[in-house]
């Protein structure tokens, strides 16, 4: 059997433990799918695979137990899936054109969840359309509120959807439901001063809990949507760590543009002697300011947007010695 491993991997088929068998990775940007597509996934698993489907951590499907020879046939079959996820501009029959940039995952968002500040699937699909297909290894996820159910803090780019609470004093009954929920569940950004709610903008994380708790809609959502980007979180064998805040109170266009710009940054600084390099390690090497300045090029940030001046990531190194050479 002669297979070009690189071509196969790029085509979203992977090398598996069983010689001669591959597994197909199905992308589901935003983690939300029309149920009809499950029939297609089911049929492929039954006909070509071993009858099982794995639900991946990135919200895709992996269909194992497929013969390498069947790849071409399967690629034709999955055309509707590619079209639905808008993964490829021209509706090709050649299957997935890249696998480096991973499926953009998202929490269920405001299509269902009351806490969500935005349609996370729609944003995930928009980002997918902007960045995919691409070979660079990027992990991106969108979460509807700072509860961060999708674990945006474990991604290269975690996007957290926000609202900026607005206050109409004439509708306030001083029940302090907003103050109490913020104090108990969030950061204590609200205070009742003389029967008037005062919001400390430095403490407010834009979760919208106060809006949800207000019985008179005295607290309400800002007309504009805002986004926080946390960056360079990762798992891995070297230095697992949580993402840190890079940009706060940004608009959607800026977020998308920044991610787009990061591909240019990676292209410039990636270590091409390695088979692949995760972006977090590139930022570790160039330093945060180089990354920041390059990805913000041409981005018009809004008046409320804040950018981190310095970032020192937490996390730990598995072995201190591996850092020494």
């Amino acid at each position: 059997m002669d297979i070009n491993r690189k071509t196969v991997t790029k085509n979203a088929f992977r090398i598996t433990k069983t010689r001669g068998k591959t597994a197909l990775r199905v992308r589901v940007p935003g983690g939300h799918l029309i149920a009809d597509y499950l029939t297609l996934i089911h049929d492929i698993a039954k006909k070509y695979g071993n009858g099982t489907v794995h639900i991946t951590t990135r919200q895709g499907f992996e269909i194992p137990g497929i013969d390498f020879e069947k790849m071409e046939e399967i690629n034709k079959l999955i055309k509707p899936l590619l079209e639905y996820v808008e993964a490829v501009p021209e509706h090709s029959e050649a299957g997935y054109p890249a696998a480096g940039t991973r499926n953009i995952s998202a929490c269920i968002g405001n299509r269902v969840c009351p806490f969500a500040n935005h349609d996370t699937t729609a944003l995930a699909k928009r980002i997918e359309k902007t960045v995919y297909p691409h070979d660079f290894h990027f992990k991106i996820a969108v979460t509807g509120c700072p509860n961060d159910c999708i674990k945006a803090h474990m991604q290269d780019f975690g996007i957290i959807c926000l609202t900026e609470p607005q206050y109409d004093e004439s509708r306030c009954i001083s029940c302090n439901a907003c103050v109490n929920v913020c104090k108990k569940k969030v950061t204590g950004a609200l205070k009742d001063e003389n029967f008037r709610i005062v919001r400390n903008a430095d403490l407010c994380i834009g979760c919208g809990e106060c809006v949800l708790k207000c019985p008179t809609q005295a607290m309400f959502r800002s007309e504009k949507r805002y986004f926080r980007m946390v960056i360079m979180g990762r798992t891995g064998k070297k230095n697992p760590r949580l993402a840190e805040i890079f940009i706060d109170w940004a608009d959607e266009d800026s977020v998308v543009q920044i991610i787009k710009n990061t591909y240019k940054y990676v292209d410039r600084y990636i270590d091409r002697t390695l088979p692949k390099e995760h972006i977090g390690y590139i930022v570790d090497r160039t330093g945060y300011p180089v990354f920041r300045d390059m990805v913000l090029e041409g981005v018009t940030l809004g008046p409320k947007t804040k950018v981190a001046q310095h970032i020192s990531w937490s996390g730990y190194r598995y072995k201190q010695s591996s850092n020494m050479s």
Partner: peptide
């Protein structure tokens, strides 16, 4: 429009 407590919901008032 969009004035509901949940995002992307309206408030009838």
């Amino acid at each position: 429009k969009n004035a509901g407590a949940f995002s992307d919901t309206d408030s009838i008032r």
